[in-house]
Amino acid sequence: MKTLLLNKEEVSRLICMKEVISAVEEAYKAFSSNQVLQPDYIGIHLPPPRGEIDFKLSYCGSNELISMKASSGGFANNLKDHGVPSGMGTILLFDARCCALLCVMEGSLITGLRTGAAGAVSVKALARKNSGKIASIGTGSQARMQIRAISEVMKIEEIHAWNNTPETLSQYKADIEGEFGIPVVMAKSKREAVEQADILITTTRGKGTLVQADWIKPGTHIVAIGTDQQGKQELEPEIFRNAKIVTDSLTQCIEKGETWHPLNKKIITRDEIHGELGEVLLGWIPGRESDQEVTIFDSTGMAIQDNITSEKIYRNAIASETGTFFEFFKS
């Protein structure tokens, strides 16, 4: 059996954001309906100045595929010393019927796309229908990806953005307004941005409270992206009191997501977590039930998102005869 090799440029041509949003919706439904086997991911932290590498694995019964993603980050000296990016990703896709390797594809773009799509899926399910203003705490590549995805599912009237570096914030404004034509207001403080939000997006590597509870207005939908392991935090735990809390994976979020913090401080109990986004999409539990409730989507990221997104890319590659085939062994 031959294995397909896809580089980053090929991957970028083989899928659009609308397809990724659809794939992520499928992934959440499959996960919450017990069609997925997804072990805890493994991370290796290497001695400074190097960073970490994580391995995420999933099996999906609906497509009979196994995916494994290796994703690295924090290697600050990579470009200077090795001529490669500070973070990289690779996805291996296996045929679960025989475990033959079907495809090796560049994975860092997929990670960015499917994480952005996750925010968009949560907005469709949980944000107020008349939402127009977005606050973005963080203005890096994932903050941009969130806008790219959310603009596919709603009309964004304006964005109130904050970054502690004025030059970075100014570049974000230029990039977003240039690509999407959406007005960007450069907030002088986090509070100034958050108080405007119908939808609040946090995409930092924060390790403490960045957003305080009394800044959140009724009816806000919060897309919490940055916290995906112990030690990270963006939201004051008090925000979770009386909010509707929806997770991507309940197990992951109570162990390493933003939800861990209010649980640890006993502000909420596990029974007060509303459920998983897949359950909302399946109609098993309600989404937003009033224009006044605060909804929180805690996204830690799941291997099944990579699985179903990379499947679509692989199928599109076969259909369009894109990529390079090679053989590990002759049958």
Rank of each mutant, 00 (worst) to 15 (best):
G208A: 04
S320H: 15
S290C: 10
E192D: 15
R205S: 12
D248T: 09
L281R: 06
Y172N: 03
S86P: 05
W162L: 10
E311P: 00
W260Y: 15
V184L: 06
S189V: 01
S72G: 14
L14K: 09
E327N: 10
A197L: 09
F326Y: 12
N242H: 15
V24Q: 00
G275W: 11
F75I: 09
H261I: 03
Q196L: 08
F329V: 12
E158Y: 02
S131W: 05
G107T: 03
S151M: 06
F326I: 10
P85S: 01
C16E: 14
L113F: 08
M302L: 15
I150G: 04
L200K: 01
M17T: 09
E26G: 03
V185D: 00
V24K: 06
I44N: 08
T324N: 13
K69Y: 04
K232W: 07
K207D: 09
Q212S: 13
F326V: 11
L235I: 12
L57R: 13
E258P: 02
L65H: 05
T139D: 00
K2C: 00
D175M: 13
E238D: 11
R315E: 09
A30G: 06
Q146F: 06
K56E: 07
A224H: 10
T203Q: 06
S136I: 01
R241M: 12
I150L: 10
G208P: 01
D81H: 13
I42S: 13
T324F: 14
V211R: 00
K18C: 06
K207V: 09
